[in-house]
Design a protein around this nucleic acid. Structure first.
Lengths: 332, 332
DNA sequence: CTGAAAGCGCTAACAT
DNA sequence: ATGTTAGCGCTTTCAG
């Protein structure tokens, strides 16, 4: 029922090859016939069938994006960075949530490859052995965004998580704190369990502070858990907190305040995210500024190069981070 | 290079039709040959090409989703509802941001139709005449989610915005307030300009309170604007605020507090969204509970019916809402 | 500058 | 239960 390239060819008295040429901007077409074809396309309301085109050309101009949870503002920001650059390069996005579940991740990869995406941006809190193997033998280029896979077998864009954590905690030790708690996101994420935790312990060690396991608490990054974490660590009398996310930091601050202490005068809190939330609470959050949007954008840009088979000097890119000073910490 | 259905057929000594049958779960295949084919598929690592399948069957099992901004938690929540149901029905999602720009919206619609999506879930703050016309002649079913289009020409899922606003403001008039400000999201959204504003004026009228245009301020839903809105309306000495979003409500509350008043004792604030944010501030926000996830889920479910050409009794669905009582208002 | 023709990989009658 | 045969709508040589 819909009008095809064939209908246009007939109406314009040319071959379908010629129609294809004008549709694809091929210059080998006489201006007069181009004009004629364009007019017929307009008249008939012809719209190229991208599926047929994809089958013939083996290019779909769509890239897959697998993300743990699009409703999580953290990942949503990343996704926006990906999408903007994808749009810029004329790609569309096939988006799926994995909920961080390995089976789903592998199955999603399979599905997207089946749909013949030209490339994939993948976000995962922990790339399993199996998933990494699948990625390596994938028929389309893949880049990890905000996700680290030890072997560096697949391209990725991140910040130096360990270093960022180290700096944040050093910011606290510099102010003389001896009891610094680390209220972390889930250790199912290797970034939390391996990198951020390491940065934390390194900063403590450097300041000659013994590691106290009662001062590190694992959470799912929820506000309420931040409040609970305060209760859990309270007996150790921590005077400073390194929070794994803004939500956690806010929960912590509220619990501290409800317990009768002031932030940052009596207790300092530094966060790790710097979302809009950081400026929507009192005191405003000092936080490691995590360039989510940029990570997504750079990952997508890298992917376009890979899809064009361009030479890429470095596939493991590390973006800079910084610490945004606000009011949940005292001036150093 | 990749293995095709043809390779499998050859290796298994059957016709491609048979392979197609086992791949598609057709029961007309002798168990023995099914098993043989399955084994070959496994051996060769055959993965059906969804593009070819789509061309032949005229079904892509993918639905388009156009959304103003996925980085906006409001829409991200909606998107998650859509995605979950889509996954449940084995559809994948082609996602694009429109930034509420009409040209982009129309062009995105065109692109998705070109990619032969089986259906579309559309979110828009204001469906223009042109867009509505495009939708009506679209070759795939479309449902609007959290977006209202006056003529009801296209299927949609919403709540009763006017009624919700009416209830929220009545909640305030009931407490005796005479000066109630409405700090709204952008009037580029017809939901704000037409429905919520109407609910607000109706509630005032019913309480015999004259409408004062100095008490309604339009914003872009940002926190800072909530604070500014307080400054702008301050001279009128409002004692209660109806905020268009949680961010706005929080900005308002902070401004009120900084001005030396207490919430809810001296000033009451009621919000309209009920995101996670509502529980992450002190006082916690009383808010109209906007069932974002459900709207997305129901919209997608409705779309599956439309795609299956099932009879649908009502294409304009209105979901229930409620008011979540917390601490930014006094008990009635 | 333009046309003819061969696929792309699969589904879907239609046979047998 | 299985095979044969047309396409699906477009890109892409290859001729001319």
């Amino acid at each position: 029922m819909p009008v095809t390239i064939y209908d246009v060819a007939r109406e314009a008295n040319v071959s379908m090859a010629t129609v294809s040429r004008v549709v694809n901007g091929n210059h080998n077409v006489k201006p007069a016939t181009r004009k004629k074809v364009l007019r017929v396309i307009e008249e008939l309301g012809y719209r190229p069938n991208a599926v047929a085109r994809g089958l013939a050309s083996k290019k779909t101009t769509t890239v897959g994006v697998v993300i743990p949870d699009i409703a999580n503002s953290f990942y949503a920001e990343l996704a926006r960075g990906i999408e903007d650059i994808a749009t810029m390069y004329r790609y569309n996005i096939l988006l799926s949530n994995s909920d961080g579940n390995e089976d789903k991740e592998r199955q999603l990869l399979e599905t997207m490859l089946g749909k013949q995406v030209d490339g994939i941006v993948f976000m995962s809190e922990r790339v399993s052995e199996g998933l990494r193997a699948d990625m390596e033998r994938a028929s389309a280029p893949i880049v990890l965004a905000g996700s680290v896979e030890e072997s560096a077998a697949v391209a990725s864009v991140n910040i130096d998580y360990r270093q960022a954590a180290y700096e944040a905690v050093s910011r606290l030790t510099a102010n003389g704190h001896k009891k610094i708690a680390f209220v972390s996101g889930p250790f199912t994420s290797n970034i939390n369990q391996d990198y951020k935790l390491k940065g934390y312990t390194e900063a403590l060690a450097e300041a000659g502070i013994p590691f106290d396991e009662n001062l590190v608490v694992e959470t799912d990054n929820f506000y309420e858990e931040g409040m609970e974490a305060y209760e859990q660590t309270k007996q150790e009398k921590p005077t400073a907190f390194f929070a794994g996310s803004d939500e956690l930091a806010i929960g912590l601050i509220h619990a501290v305040q409800e317990d009768g202490f002031t932030v940052p005068e009596q207790v300092e809190v530094i966060s790790y995210e710097n979302s809009k939330l950081a400026q929507m609470v009192r005191p405003r959050l000092t936080s490691v500024a995590f360039p989510l949007y940029d990570i997504g954008a750079v990952a997508m840009r890298l992917l376009t190069k890979l899809m064009n088979a361009e030479e890429v000097e470095e596939t493991q890119v590390i973006l800079p981070h910084r610490i945004e000073e606000r009011s949940s910490t005292r001036n150093a």
